[in-house]
Design a protein around this nucleic acid. Structure first.
Lengths: 190, 190
DNA sequence: TATAATAGCTAATGCAATTAGCATTATTGT
DNA sequence: ACAATAATGCTAATTGCATTAGCTATTATA
């Protein structure tokens, strides 16, 4: 019997499974079961087996995040753009914990492809900064800072959960304001 | 033959292996080979098998990082303390990439123990902020911001490597200055 | 020194990934 | 329409690691 599957459809299902149960639970066996096929059949779609599946999930995740961020910053500039970008990133992670795990996977097989995967988001952050008056080098630093903050905060949030007296939302906004204020201060600096 | 091993000795070797080859390569088989014993023997030290080994590595990593940070901030206050703390954290990660991977593992089996593991570092960051004039709530926010930044930056650094035109060192210092400047600005804010 | 605990071993099991080779269903060129 | 080909699925078999069970030697202790 032919199940009428395609790489894209499989990736979408796999992403859903990863988001629901965590990336570690996404085995070829579990995925095959879900799809109603046998594990070896997956190799017809993913020659590279589990590794390739993970790589595709990573790329899929970055593409999706790029798309959402792009939408979110349309028509916005400076602080508004950065704020929208950060909130979008955070929302994405909260809704796609499994994909986010896969997206952090990009050093394995330290290849080009993986480097480029996150380059899209980096580029969008970079362009969101275009309306600020800063040197290109300052922009690179700022992109890295924002990226580090977003990734770090998201990771902690995913891992730790949100059961504190002081809400994480407040901390996120606080940190965002701090970063923006830092950016505003950076005129005269080297 | 008795190899005269103890849980502690094994963890130290395992940590070294993880740092050298990556956490994923640290299998019970590889560890047993390295130790000159057979895989099942490891269960005499780690009842819980691979899971427990990973958990112990995580705890070991946090203990070690706590120790180094504690040493680094002795006799320092305010910005000096924060700067020392951040540099120490970053240096630690660059020297212990495998352990760092294990340290991020702390949500699995979403238990108490894991929560507490990173609490030590959080506490040290918190205490490093004691000499600033800010409310307790602001301190919590700031701790989270610093922690997110450090973790995010380190992760990116570990994953991406350092082959850019703009050196990561500069970006790190830049971000650190930005955060400190943001902290300095936060007097009147809510 | 007898006894219990410790730390190692071998043998066997289970499970997921993967490979090889076969069968069936689509597709496509004529 | 139909032969050739590609695509997609299957079963059977292999590999490798984690884990369990049960045995043995060594160490520590009463």
């Amino acid at each position: 019997m032919k199940a009428g599957l395609s790489k894209e459809k499989i990736i979408i299902i796999a992403a859903k499974m990863a988001d629901e149960k965590g990336l570690a639970e996404l085995t070829l066996k579990a995925l095959a079961d879900e799809l109603g096929i046998k594990p070896p059949s997956l190799y017809k779609h993913f020659n590279g087996g589990l590794d390739e599946l993970n790589k595709e999930l990573m790329l899929y995740g970055w593409r999706m995040l790029d798309g959402e961020i792009t939408k979110a910053v349309i028509g916005k500039a400076k602080d508004d753009a950065v704020i929208a970008l950060c909130h979008t990133y955070r929302k994405f992670v909260s809704e796609h914990k499994g994909l986010f795990e896969a997206m952090q996977w990009y050093n394995m097989y330290q290849s080009e492809e993986h480097q480029q995967a996150s380059a899209g988001s980096v580029d969008i952050i970079y362009r969101s900064l275009s309306s600020y008056e800063m040197t290109d080098e300052q922009k690179v630093h700022t992109v890295r800072m924002i990226r580090a903050f977003l990734q770090g905060f998201s990771t902690i949030e995913v891992h730790v959960g949100s059961n504190y007296p002081v809400p994480l939302d407040d901390s996120f906004d606080f940190a965002l304001r701090t970063i923006l204020s830092g950016i505003a201060d950076m005129k005269g600096d080297e």
